[in-house]
Design a protein around this nucleic acid. Structure first.
Lengths: 251, 251
DNA sequence: CGCCCACTTGAGGAATGTCAATCTCCGTGG
DNA sequence: CCACGGAGATTGACATTCCTCAAGTGGGCG
């Protein structure tokens, strides 16, 4: 796994991609892999805290997260920040910029991240050469819309403890699907501020709700680790059902 | 314009589609029209209050709104409702159901609506035969994601008067783009409850914010009509810039 | 050792929600 | 023609949630 100067690493085989081990991703055909190899233009490694794409900017790149975590967020002039989503391995980044022209949110690395890099200008040819993959991209966009819909519902209509429960459940769920968490334990890369900004709550109030969840024996979050003490009650409070997560495409 | 029994009307020529008159939609090539004629499977007319697609259901159809208004919303068991968006002519409905398998929100007619109907099973063939249109569908999905992101930002981080200003500005903007409003006046098909549910506010508080906006000479909403009294201040309060709305695809 | 960042906790206040009463249309039936 | 009823809008009083401010604590790292 060679690495050159500015963080862009050399290409690798997509079949052996580290993400392929997880059964949450749909398998690849040979024809697909053939195309994807040409589509992939390199790998990018960024340190924690780096901005990957900036709101309002036009980027020539698209990414798939290979490793690490990030967040997508928007900010108002006065600094109020809304986190739109948390990034995990397998997530596709920058589609908005590729089809519209400009990203309407910022993407930032929370830990060190490794990203698979694509050229925006090649995206359309994918629709022509491998329509199935084009369809997959639409699938991902529709999925993102669904997730944002849930998120909006949570922020708009649930109260603070429900929101926090929802946020923690979501993070745990996502981490588990890519092997970053066990059934009851998760290494937490995000801060309480990140969570608060995702849920439309203040940091202080979020902290108090965490305290309450701990007192109730539902979850405990301390020293960068999240413990799920009572998954059933967490899900009940979050207002979610057990997810029968079918496979999703991986670009 | 023949109409048969249960509200499904006969096909028409897409070039003469009522929506083509608006320059917010990108033009059609002949090849595209050829395909779209085959893709279109009919028209559907529904009365105000009807449900078009139901959360959790699998529908064999996709729609483009030809006339009228609707809302997309989700509800919790206890009745709390979140409006995800307002539907205007040109909007594409049911994509989630077509690519995933199940809609995660309900779509409901607020006025009498006319919809152009497509078969879900034909969608994939569009990607194969007219990749450009497949790309357009992705464009629409990405756009929807962007709009939901703005919406989430508003609900999560703006206070009540900003939210109401944002909601009214958005409705006016959308209505204008399809000729349903003048620069300072709009026929309002939605209720204050709809707006409140979109903004994550109670009906009562939304009403009080409307009162305040009226007292400040910014907007006035009475007897189903919205008057924009001071567009500049409305936009400032809503925290938006003048939209340089480029053309968008019409499916 | 000391600083910085994330987290924690309490106190007080502002924003928003809930409840309840009333009003204004507008359509329907007598 | 008028009485009635229902849906949406409006307003005031009061309750609650959540935010802001302020003052910590605790651990990691230079």
């Amino acid at each position: 796994m060679g690495k050159n100067g500015n963080g862009v690493r050399s290409q690798e085989n997509c079949k052996t991609c580290v993400l392929r081990q997880f059964d949450c991703f749909a398998p690849f055909s040979d024809a697909e892999e053939q195309f994807m190899l040409g589509f992939k233009s390199g790998e990018l490694v960024v340190e924690a805290g780096s901005t990957i794409v900036l709101e309002g900017a036009v980027s020539p790149h698209l990414f798939t997260v290979l490793d690490g975590n990030g967040i997508r967020h928007k900010s108002l002039e006065d600094g109020r920040r809304q986190v739109l989503g948390f990034l995990f391995p397998g997530d596709f980044v920058g589609l908005q910029g590729a089809v519209m022209n400009e990203m309407q949110h910022t993407v930032e690395a929370v830990t060190r991240m490794v990203l698979c890099v694509f050229q925006r200008r090649d995206l359309y040819s994918m629709y022509v050469k491998i329509p199935e993959r084009g369809f997959d991209v639409t699938w991902l966009a529709a999925r993102e819309e669904q997730v944002l819909g849930d998120h909006l519902m949570t922020v708009g209509r649930r109260n603070a403890d429900e929101r926090v429960a929802f946020g923690l459940w979501l993070l745990h769920q996502r981490a588990r699907s890519v092997g970053m968490a066990s059934k009851s334990r998760m290494e937490m890369p995000f801060t309480q501020q990140d969570l608060a900004d995702a849920l439309g709550l203040s940091l202080v109030h979020t902290n108090k709700m965490l305290r309450r969840l701990k007192d109730r024996g539902i979850v405990e979050w301390s020293s960068r680790t999240l413990h799920i003490l009572d998954g059933e009650r967490l899900m009940a409070l979050a207002g979610v059902d057990e997810e029968v997560s079918r496979q999703r495409p991986l670009i």
